[in-house]
Design a protein around this nucleic acid. Structure first.
Lengths: 336, 336
DNA sequence: ACGCGGGTCGTAAACGGTTTCAGACTTCCG
DNA sequence: CGGAAGTCTGAAACCGTTTACGACCCGCGT
């Protein structure tokens, strides 16, 4: 039914081999026959079947992307970056959403592995040993986390936290709360160590508030703990968490940023739209997506020659309206 | 390198044909040899190459999904629904993001058509004739719009608008503005006709405010026009638009809902999180995604026997905090 | 005239599966 | 014990493409 290479060959009066060559290695075939083939192909609307080609070349021209939750704007942006880069390189991308379901990435990656040249795995929470199970069949690059010797693309979370903390310190805050994300999240760990390091250096009281789901509701739940802690500023694991904080603080009538400053992380679109606009550390989501497919693609045609690679992208604090100088008389905490 | 059907055959001491049968038509092979084959397959970790299978069966087990913008939470939810349903049916899905770029769906669908059994096209803005160009090669079902005789899944936009309008009328509003979405958007047209119909029946002044981009910024831009129009309530094309309206109204110090009521459409997650929470007409995004793959899959194994099909899902007004009774003395407009 | 090399092109064998067809083996019955 | 019917299994063709190999033609040098 669909037009095949044989149809083109017949129409052009040549063999299939010539058609194949004319289209993919044009310099190997004489100019006039090449023209005949091209004309016939255009005429018949021929498009090579990539699956059949992949069968013999080993390259399918497909990439796989596994993310925990497409509805999370952070991942949505990453996906867009991946998409764009893949399309530019003439690749298609399978996208699978694990729905935050533990262990699903293993199944999904196995299902995909035969159909793709490489896999991008975005699995912040899965334990390392689980990741080890995936991708013996296909080349895998991790995104937004590191694990073992696996190639990966990450963002400099620790430095982002440093920027946020120094910003707050410069504003006079000395007791600062951090609303932690999921206990097993890789980037949460990064952010915590980043915070701890600069907190010690800067002499600030860092209050660690339990582990909360990295969503709006998590921030809502954490807000009361934050004000009770006597902190004059709160850093949310996430923009979503930070927005949750803002919401609950607003509901309680606590003015932001005058009574308490809030900063988020990720810089999702919503943050700029909020009122007041959220101060946040921006992570290059699109670029990270692009960089990851760049790395993956380069690994693919390097032919596993270079060792494991790692790229880390910078983060950047964006100061908006939810941070200001610390209130003059903090309710409690060390002001000495 | 990867284990093939031949490896399994050798390990089990049978031919490839038997392996193939044992795994896909188990009743055709004797119980003991079937057991041997299954054991060998499990042992070697054999997973059939779907691309190779597709080459001869014509079914790849892949679906394609083309959406205008993954970062838009509306589409993100739809995608999640599609994902879930596809996974349940043991299918993988290619996702392509056109980035709102006109004409991109044609290219993308052509690129994908050979690799998928069917295509879900979510292209609210493209003109009908452009859609006609896509999908002569593969079966296509439209999502969130109709066009010609194409099979499609939509939501009852018009009825949703009716519910919203009746809600506002019941609250005493008589002059109501609608912030229209893109001029060429199918669902915008649906929503406008739904509004116009019930507006006439209910005797309300419907103010049509230009065409705005279906985003937060669109709402921001439209807000001032809305208050100037003298309307006591505004319906946004979108939740994003409605949130933009709320933002600008808040910035101008106009109290919502006391001075003006606002209602959105779609019920994206953000709407419930806003303060005040947005009254909106909820559209079943996930279900729509699921229903679309259901329809597509049923068409695929019906073998093009049934004619074009259409499914329409209901919408449901969700009353939250941005709507209340009309203010007693509207600035202007017909109060007679 | 002959051999040789380079440029073009066709034949056929892969790739990893499925499916048709026919043969081999059982089983059962007369 | 022979044969018919039925059950399993294997050989081979096929899906659409790429590619190794060889055939052919041409012009060149000797």
């Amino acid at each position: 039914m669909a037009t095949t290479i044989r149809d083109v060959a017949r129409a052009a009066g040549v063999s299939q081999a010539t058609v194949s060559r004319a289209l993919s290695m044009p310099e190997l075939v004489r100019a006039d026959t090449r023209a005949r083939v091209e004309a016939a192909a255009r005429e018949l609307g021929y498009r090579p079947n990539r699956a059949a080609r992949g069968l013999i070349t080993g390259r399918t021209g497909n990439l796989g992307l596994i993310v925990p939750d497409l509805a999370n704007p952070f991942f949505a942006s990453v996906v867009k970056g991946v998409q764009a880069a893949a399309r530019a390189a003439d690749h298609s991308v399978f996208i699978a959403d694990t729905d935050e379901e533990a262990g699903a990435e293993v199944d999904l990656s196995r299902a995909l592995s035969k159909q793709v040249d490489g896999l991008i795995l975005c699995s912040p929470r899965a334990p390392d040993e689980e990741l080890a199970a995936v991708g013996s069949d296909t080349t895998v690059v991790l995104m937004n986390r590191m694990a073992g010797e696996r190639p990966s693309v990450t963002v400099d979370n620790a430095d982002g936290m440093r920027q946020a903390l120094e910003h707050l310190v410069a504003l006079g805050h000395r007791r600062i709360a951090f609303v932690a994300g999921p206990r097993t999240s890789w980037s949460n760990a990064q952010r915590e160590t980043g915070l701890r390091g600069t907190a010690e250096a800067g002499g600030v009281d860092l209050v660690h508030l339990g582990h909360f789901p990295p969503q709006f509701e998590g921030g809502v739940a954490a807000a009361d703990l934050a004000v009770a802690s006597g902190a004059t500023a709160v850093i949310g694991y996430n923009d979503l968490v930070a927005l949750g904080l803002l919401s609950r603080l607003g509901a309680r009538g606590i003015p932001v940023p005058d009574a308490i400053s809030v900063v988020g992380c990720d810089d999702i679109g919503m943050s700029a739209m909020n009122h007041p606009a959220l101060t946040t550390v921006s992570v290059p989501k699109r670029s990270a997506g692009r960089a990851t497919v760049g790395l993956l693609l380069s690994m693919l045609d390097a032919g596993a020659e270079a060792g494991p690679v790692h790229r880390e992208l910078p983060t950047q604090l964006i100061v908006r309206d939810t941070t200001t100088v610390a209130p003059v008389s903090p309710t409690k905490g060390s002001t000495r």
